[in-house]
Nucleic acid binder design. Structure first.
Lengths: 246, 246
DNA sequence: TAAATAGTGTCTATTAGACAATATGTA
DNA sequence: TACATATTGTCTAATAGACACTATTTA
């Protein structure tokens, strides 16, 4: 193969930044959208993304991801980030043949949205592609490019990995309680989770040195206060031998 | 964003085609290598790959993958194929900044190698990066680009997915036996697998309509013949609730 | 019949789910 | 004290691992 005839080709990265909104009833998973500043689709709400090694050089894709996370498009420190896949074809970008390598990221707690940013329910973004969580009415929210599809693929990965790992707990940050753990896991999986099942899992994580019980309590309104558990390895995912059932 | 200054950029795909060599003692997983016909690294043994939408136009990445599998570089019909990830940086290809989206594929039975092709033990290709399976002496086999690393990443995916799915059975093709199933799974996982555990899993797959028991027997030398089980959904992967232990 | 290999049955350990029972707060 | 919520305990079901036992073939 001789040196190529380099035809127009864009390689971009896009990131699906997820947070857990505990305040809504019931809680829900939300996605960070950014209002585009340039063409195409200027001023439309879309996933934050950028061109890899385009106008701005990047030593690697991972470096480009860090650049994106540090930019004003995101500007948040994720506790977790993972590459999900790459989609590429001639039609997804009106400019030219393009590929996107897309990631999902988790930010802890009630990280607020900034300038030209908003959080939207994940269920709404995948409404065309997937059924909503039980008890929720999903309102389709169309995005440019194939960004709805990317959200759906990320949602699939999030659910399947949450069946047999501690991934949902990352939404809670450095401290968590049994009730919060069961709630966020149920929210991610879209089905009830027994607190006794959750407790067994948390105990396994304490045993393995991922979590540590504390004497702190968290009191919300009436009732017995929740015992606070501290994460010893923030951002690290623990894998269980067994799945929650489907 | 205005129309880009398109700098030299290659997007390639590479595929790690795996087969199970039952004949060796013990059995082993092997990777298809192709002797390169063009620069860079002309005549070196490497993973089969091609440039996406380069000299030859491709409607999509998936179409490029089909083109690669149909080309003389591979020329085999896989029973399974899955995208694993994308690696990209300025240094992995001597020509220019490049990214590769890499796949793993499974071919059933003793598919033979063709012109400028050979199969090499997966353990040897990941020897630098990962320990060999127990009972095997791995001999490092260096490949150009970052192809050894890609093999290691595929090996990780293969093992982790094989813990809780029927993936290893795909190496066996349309028909299989309990003994073969336990053997190939043990080979993939690099640890013994009880036939009673395997039987429970095969029964679950019969129950779910993935497998069907037959009256055929398979006799090899001495001893009781093996009962032949037929795959009703070839290429489809069944997921179990529990993992094999590590 | 002896040897070799395949397949089955039994016991233990782990863990998810359901749900009852107990503990600890507030009003 | 009444109530709300959190936490713990008990029982069942499913399934992996270990390994003994039975079945079916060849020589």
């Amino acid at each position: 193969m001789t040196i190529q005839n380099f035809s127009p080709y864009l390689h971009t990265i896009d990131v699906v930044v997820l947070r857990y909104a505990a305040g809504t009833q019931p809680g829900r998973i939300e996605v960070l959208l950014h209002q585009r500043e340039n063409e195409p689709y200027k001023d439309a709400w879309a996933l934050p993304g950028l061109v890899v090694n385009g106008d701005i050089p990047d030593p690697s894709i991972e470096a480009a991801v860090k650049r994106l996370m540090a930019s004003s498009k995101v500007g948040m420190e994720p506790v977790y980030i993972e590459q999900v896949g790459t989609e590429g074809n001639a039609t997804r970008d009106p400019r030219c043949w393009s590929s996107t390598t897309y990631y999902f990221a988790i930010v802890a707690g009630d990280t607020p949205a900034g300038e030209r940013q908003q959080f939207v329910a994940l269920d709404d973004l995948v409404a065309q592609q997937r059924p909503a969580a039980p008890g929720r009415q999903a309102n389709a929210y169309p995005l440019p490019f194939d960004h709805n599809r990317l959200c759906a693929l990320v949602a699939d990965r999030l659910v399947s990995k949450s069946l047999y790992s501690s991934l949902p707990l990352l939404f809670l940050g450095d401290t968590l309680t049994l009730t919060e753990s069961a709630d966020v896991t149920a929210c991610v999986l879209g089905r009830p989770v027994q607190k006794s099942s959750m407790r067994t899992r948390l105990l396994a994580m304490v045993e393995a040195g991922y979590l540590q019980e504390t004497d702190d309590k968290k009191q919300l309104g009436m009732g017995r206060p929740q015992s606070v558990i501290r994460s010893v390895k923030p951002g690290q995912v623990f894998f269980f031998d067994r799945s929650f059932e489907k």
